[in-house]
Amino acid sequence: MRDFAVNRTSGLLVLPLVCVLALFLVVPICLILVVSFWDYNEWNFFPAFIFDNYAYIFTSPVTWATYLRTLQYTVITWVFCTAIGFTVAYFLAFHVRSQTWQIALFLLCTIPFWNSNIIRMISWIPFLGRNGIANSVLLDAGLIDVPLEWLLFSDFAVILAFVHLYTLFMVVPVFNTMMRIDRSLIEAARDAGASGWQTLVHFVLPLSKPGLMIGSIFIVTLVMGDFITVRFMSGGQSASVGRVIANEIALLQYPAAAANAVILLATVLLIVSVMLRYVDIRKEL
């Protein structure tokens, strides 16, 4: 009887959250799913039950090319964000001894994020351009004879912007997990004769896994769903799944966009569920 009461209380407590999630997450996704089977013309979309939208996605070579490109962006961005993010977090957590300095430096990392995402991205354009600062400096230094064309409007530019925009999403969770590593473990490792490298690989890295995984989920979902960075930094020349969806929405092809969104959602969920198999995040939080 008492158990039932507890259950009812917790049920009631969780109810608002359930309602909010149902209304703003589950219902919209269901609607997207429904609309993805609808038909459309130039100015309207209307109920139907057709598989054309999906058929086109799966048969078009562009879909495969786009997904491949998007995944490629994701993997490369993830590698750089993880390497940089882990290093920065490690430095903050283990090399900076005073807590005041840790907090100060951590805040320093977040300062660029007080500005808009778009502004931070667009600032790269004049910097990397044919007559931009980067090229002028290299030319003046005599390192190159002709301006480097691949600096801007290229995959390089896209990934550079991604790494710049998203590294902090790796730094924060990794720093957080590292701070909770029991320092006596490190001392024990040292006492047992482990070198610095061995301590890093056998203790710090495994113990930081939850943070790394949370950061990775952030980066994967952010990059997979991006449409604006790819458009600006590639000069509109590269496609990503997000851009395809954005284009379809702009052209009033809502059902096609919905179908694409469903496939993207499924893909991302799949990737995230695979990632979660390696680390039980809930246990670590």
Binding site: N41, E42, Y56, S60, P61, V62, A65, T66, R69, G236, Q237, S238, A239, R243, V244, N247, E248, L251, Q253
Partner: peptide, 19 residues
């Protein structure tokens, strides 16, 4: 202009952008 084959044209255009 908008063409009779608008839907087809838009798909091809998107393919061009993605190519």
């Amino acid at each position: 202009a908008v063409m009779d084959e608008n839907k087809y044209m838009v798909r091809k255009w998107n393919e061009f952008i993605a190519a």
